[in-house]
């Protein structure tokens, strides 16, 4: 193998794992009794524009399946959950992060899926194939996507 390529690959692996190490893994997230997650999962600021995309995209957060978010340009927004317009007037950033990571800490028994959880699940599947998962599941959103969605939610102010 070409030595330069090998070293470059090794360096890239280190860089990736260094970035990863700064992230809080799904199992390590700490919730307050009220369901808040006070610390950023990545230490990097979230990008509201990317968060908007995550919220509107079916294969990502798919928040619009259950929530009306007037700021998003997505057809057929659902009403399983409350409208998210003005969410930042009602909730703090730590609270919103807690809801996105795992809403069941804020709303007991909620039907809202936990976006940053890797298990345990009952009969986990391989995406939407109906087949068994082939290995450990990645969370629905990665740590930075969670931060991006939280940053987007923080822009939803009505007052």
């Amino acid at each position: 193998m070409n030595r330069h390529v090998a070293w470059a690959a090794l360096a890239a692996t280190f860089a990736a794992s260094a970035a990863f190490a700064a992230e809080t893994a799904p199992m390590d997230v700490k919730f307050t009794d009220a369901g808040e997650v006070t610390d950023s999962l990545t230490g990097q600021p979230g990008d509201p524009a990317k968060g908007a995309e995550v919220a509107a995209t079916k294969s990502l957060g798919n928040c619009v399946a259950c929530h009306v978010v007037s700021a998003l340009d997505a057809a057929f927004q659902g009403n399983i959950g409350p409208e998210l317009n003005g969410a930042a007037d009602r909730w703090s950033e730590a609270q919103l992060r807690g809801i996105v990571v795992d809403a069941k800490h804020t709303f007991e028994g909620s039907v809202m899926p936990s976006m940053y959880k890797t298990g345990p699940f009952i009969r986990p599947g391989d995406g939407y194939t109906g087949k068994a998962a082939t290995g450990d599941l990645a969370p629905i959103l990665n740590a930075q996507q969670v931060e991006d969605v939280v940053a987007f939610l923080m822009t939803l102010k009505e007052e």
Binding site: N62, G78, N79, I80, P113, F121, I122, G125
Partner: peptide, 25 residues
């Protein structure tokens, strides 16, 4: 009443708690 899969939803989550509502379209 079992909440299956990564989305942790049971038949009841959709058809008992939320009938009449819209899930996307």
């Amino acid at each position: 009443y079992t909440r299956y899969g990564q989305l942790e939803l049971s038949c009841a989550s959709c058809h008992e708690e939320n009938y009449g509502n819209y899930i996307r379209a």
